[in-house]
Amino acid sequence: MAQFRYLRYFTKRYPLTVTGAVIIFLVVMVSLAAPLVSPHNPYTLNLTDRLKPPGSIYLLGTDELGRDILSRIIYGARLSLLAGVGIVGIAGLFGIVIGSVSGLLGGKVDQAVMRLMDIMLAFPSLVLALALSAALGANFRNSILAIAIVKIPVYVRLVRGQALSIKERQFVKAAQTFGAPKVWIISRHIIPNCLAPVVVQATLGIGEAILIAATLSFIGLGAQPPAAEWGAMVSMGRIYLLDQWWYASFPGIAIFITVIGFNLFGDGVRDMLDPRFRN
């Protein structure tokens, strides 16, 4: 009962955050339960029902091969979530390790690492991701890797900044006087204490990551047919946009809602962890 009251208070206090959380929850549930909730097989071709408008059998219509768009969107949620979490996960992990080492060691190592990151940040992220994923070979896994690599500098900078301030804190000095090796200081003192902003950055980053992954698929450098991926679906539907509006629109809306969900939630997490917004 107490939890319920807290939930109600929370909803009233942070309506947007809760909306974001609900959207994320729904997307996650739907993608987990995809085989149960999707009305049709997303990959079954049904050439007699090509490009059918939304109706009672095909709720959101069908594509040019007669595949159910709703089912494909539901399965597409899996790929998009995987892309979002995968990209942020890989980029965050490398960012934390590189950033904390660079911040703690300082000096030449730090200079070298940070200038490399500056160079990476000087490229527009989409262009760099495009180039990398074209170089790695166009498929879904490589597109995630490419975007993750492009996003690493964001986390490196963030964590390095944190590491610089944390390493001056008394408990790090104290740990040194107790004879803690550098590896310990990084793993037990610096990393755990700089996670809060990384978590915020990561939640906000998932939405963007999903968007870039969809963009790469849209261009043809991400998920390849017949994969049910939202960006790829929009890309195919673009040709039919004037006559069969539903084909490109619904996957587009799916991207929009999911990204909005992560962004709202990320904003909320940031506000909650920022003491200036707390009262």
């Binding site: 804190r169 008394q170 408990f171 000095k173 104290a174 037990r188 003192h189 755990p192 204490n193």
Partner: peptide
């Protein structure tokens, strides 16, 4: 140290 408030790691 002088400041026991900050000499312990707050995360453990």
């Amino acid at each position: 140290f002088q400041e026991p408030m900050n000499a312990l790691n707050p995360s453990y």
